[in-house]
């Protein structure tokens, strides 16, 4: 009973075991890599090797097909949850100086009275992305774009760090807090709409998504409508456009009114 007696072609168990296994493997490989690829009438293969490579999943680049020219610029910002996660005191200080020119719309404390977004305590990654998109033209706004177009990378990072550093304060929208509408906490699964709250606060927050509590109702509504019409298109992989297009006008109003009525999450402002 040694390995010598086992692993020898004189041992019928060895011969049969290995033989049957190999035969099954060869037959299934022939069917899977040659027969089935050719059985697909809608695919043309140059030769058998081409079919085998296709079935094996060999990565191929399609030659001579250029990416279609984009009519409008898309966002090129890459965000991870580490983006600007550890700001220095100097960066925040530089950002504070730069932010003076933003104050006319976004408020000296980062709270807007002009239906512009409140920036105090907004996630750094969010401000970073929007400023980059305004600068590159992926997002455009008659008022905002001229401010962003001359910013350097360093200035964008500093501004983002500064606004993220500011404490979150209650906004100037003193409406009574509304109950959570269905679109915010449940979404509309049958229309492929995830709950607003699963990315933008109230349930959870995700990288790259702004928290929305206390933002201006008019602003939120305008952005959702802009996403729905395709006028705004700096959302990665059309995430927001797909959602906004599927929302009813009533749901857009409910979501905007709900978020505008919420106080910001004060606890999070200190971390």
């Amino acid at each position: 009973m040694s390995a010598r007696d086992l692993f020898t072609f004189r041992n019928p168990h060895f011969t049969r075991g290995v033989g049957i296994t190999a035969a099954i493997l060869i037959v299934t490989a022939i069917v899977g890599f040659i027969v089935l690829p050719f059985a697909q009438p809608w695919v043309q293969f140059a030769n058998v090797w081409d079919a085998i490579c296709s079935a094996a999943g060999v990565p191929q680049r399609l030659a001579g097909v250029a990416a279609p020219e984009q009519a409008k610029r898309l966002s090129e910002v890459v965000l991870t949850s580490h983006t600007l996660s550890r700001p220095s005191q100097e960066a925040i200080g530089r950002g504070a100086t730069l932010a003076q020119r933003c104050a006319i719309c976004h408020g000296p404390t980062g709270l807007s009275r002009a239906d512009s977004p409140n920036l105090a305590g907004q996630y750094a990654a969010v401000i970073y992305k929007e400023l980059h998109d305004f600068r590159s033209g992926a997002r455009t706004n008659a008022v905002m774009s001229p401010f962003a177009v001359n910013l350097t990378d360093q200035e964008i990072a500093d501004l983002s760090d500064y606004y993220a550093f500011l404490p979150r304060l209650p906004a100037y929208h003193p409406t009574p807090q509304l109950p959570k509408p269905s679109i915010v906490i449940y979404g509309a699964p049958m229309r492929g709409i995830a709950p607003c709250g699963s990315c933008h606060g109230s349930l959870d927050n995700k990288t790259g998504s702004p928290w929305l509590e206390g933002q201006s109702e008019a602003y939120l509504k305008a952005q959702l409508q802009a996403f729905a019409s395709g006028e705004r298109r700096n959302d990665i992989s059309q995430q927001m456009r797909n959602i906004a297009r599927a929302m009813t006008p009533q749901e857009i109003e409910q979501a905007a009114a709900y978020y505008a009525s919420q106080p910001p999450d004060i606890v999070k402002a200190v971390d």
Binding site: I24, L25, T28, A29, V31, G32, F33, L36, P37, I52, S54, A55, A56, G57, V58
Partner: peptide
């Protein structure tokens, strides 16, 4: 999408076994 259809078939056949 990252796995070739041929390998999927082979695995399917062995699963039958």
């Amino acid at each position: 999408p990252q796995v070739g259809a041929g390998f999927k078939f082979v695995h399917s056949a062995f699963t039958a076994l």
